[in-house]
Design a protein around this nucleic acid. Structure first.
Lengths: 108, 108
DNA sequence: ATAAGCGATATCGGTATACGATATTGCTTT
DNA sequence: AAAGCAATATCGTATACCGATATCGCTTAT
């Protein structure tokens, strides 16, 4: 089980994580969750779906329902507004993180 | 005002941030808050103090009340357990962050 | 044609966390 | 002894996370 502190970090980072992936290719909830799982992370659908809804409502993502093999997936892709925000957020996060993680670089 | 998404990140990162500083020198709430403020960040005392309490309760920090000019400050320093956790958390966070922020490096 | 199956999304009730505002602590000075 | 002050602590409300459960929409079997 993950340390709570690392988990808090993970959760605070999840929206950025989502936008980052949605910038590369359209994503949908279940697959995104699975991929996190493959990397040892887990997020409840009760958390994940409302986050998608909110990101769409705020204009950072836009969704499209697609029938794949008879099942409906809701694919999300990033909007122009989302890209702008993501770029800016990444810069701010990098500044925040660089100072604190500086001395852990050699431990990689 | 900060973007909500960046704020979520900041909040998820705050415990790491605190431990990081407490590793360098003993810290107390009000000064820590002021220093964040100087860097453009803000955290409510209603959020900050309970975080300190929890980190101490979990054994990552230990506090000592010190009278400075007639005022009581509660200085926190990191414990051995806290150091171990911090080192581990930093590595995990670096892995998480590196993939996502990779392509923002040249924008620094 | 209908109901069972299934991938996927949506939502619910309980619990925890963040916030601004207010109260409290503990010492010093008047 | 009470007023002043830096600093810490806590309160009530709002929001977020969670596991569990419900719902959706299509396909296949009866």
């Amino acid at each position: 089980m993950m340390e709570k502190i690392t988990r808090d970090f993970f959760l605070g980072f999840i929206r950025i994580h989502i936008l980052h992936h949605a910038e590369k290719e359209p994503i949908f909830g279940q697959r995104f969750s699975e991929e996190l799982g493959r990397h040892g992370y887990h997020i409840s659908y009760g958390t994940l779906y409302p986050i998608f809804h909110r990101l769409e409502k705020e204009g950072y993502l836009v969704s499209e329902k697609i029938n794949v093999g008879g099942k409906i997936r809701k694919y999300y892709k990033i909007t122009r507004k989302g890209k702008r925000m993501l770029t800016e957020a990444k810069q701010q996060i990098r500044e925040l993180v660089d100072e604190v993680l500086e001395d852990s670089k050699e431990l990689k």
